[in-house]
Simulated assay, not measured.
Amino acid sequence: MTYTVNCSILLTELPLLERPAAAKAAGFDAVEFWWPFAESVPADRDVDAFIGAIRDAGVQLTGLNFNAGDMPAGDRGLVSWPARSAEFRDNIAVVAGIGRALGTKGFNALYGLRQDGVDTAEQDAVAIENLAAAAAGVAPIGGTVLLEPVSGAPAYPLKTAADALRVIDAVNAASGAENLKLLADFYHLAVNGDDVAAVIEAHAPSFGHIQIADDPGRGAPGTGGLPLEAWIARSRELGYGGPIGLEYKAPIDEAFTWLAGAEPSAATSTAATA
Rank of each mutant, 00 (worst) to 15 (best):
G97K: 08
P205F: 13
A125N: 00
H203G: 04
A213R: 09
P251N: 10
E32T: 04
A121Q: 12
S85E: 13
A133N: 08
E129N: 11
T104A: 11
N192L: 09
V41T: 15
R45T: 13
V47W: 06
I98G: 00
N130A: 07
P72G: 12
F186H: 13
P221N: 08
G242P: 07
A272G: 14
A134W: 00
W81V: 15
L165G: 04
A190E: 10
D116Q: 14
T160L: 13
R236P: 04
G245M: 07
I212D: 03
P72L: 10
G142P: 06
I54D: 00
Q115P: 01
A250S: 15
N172Q: 14
D119H: 12
T120E: 15
R76G: 03
E201S: 13
M1A: 13
D253I: 02
G27V: 00
A202R: 15
A272W: 13
G99W: 02
D70K: 13
L14W: 06
F107L: 10
R76D: 01
V47R: 15
R76L: 11
L64G: 01
L158K: 06
G245D: 06
L61R: 01
A127E: 02
P82L: 03
A162L: 14
L189W: 03
I232E: 09
S235T: 05
A267W: 09
Q60N: 14
A134E: 01
A121L: 11
Y248N: 10
R19L: 03
I252Q: 13
P72H: 09
A73E: 14
Y3I: 02
V167M: 15
A204P: 05
G176M: 06
H188N: 14
D194S: 12
R236W: 05
L16S: 11
I212E: 02
V191H: 04
R166Q: 15
T144N: 09
K105M: 11
G152M: 11
A127V: 01
A135P: 01
T104P: 07
M1R: 14
T144Q: 08
G99C: 11
F50G: 03
P140W: 13
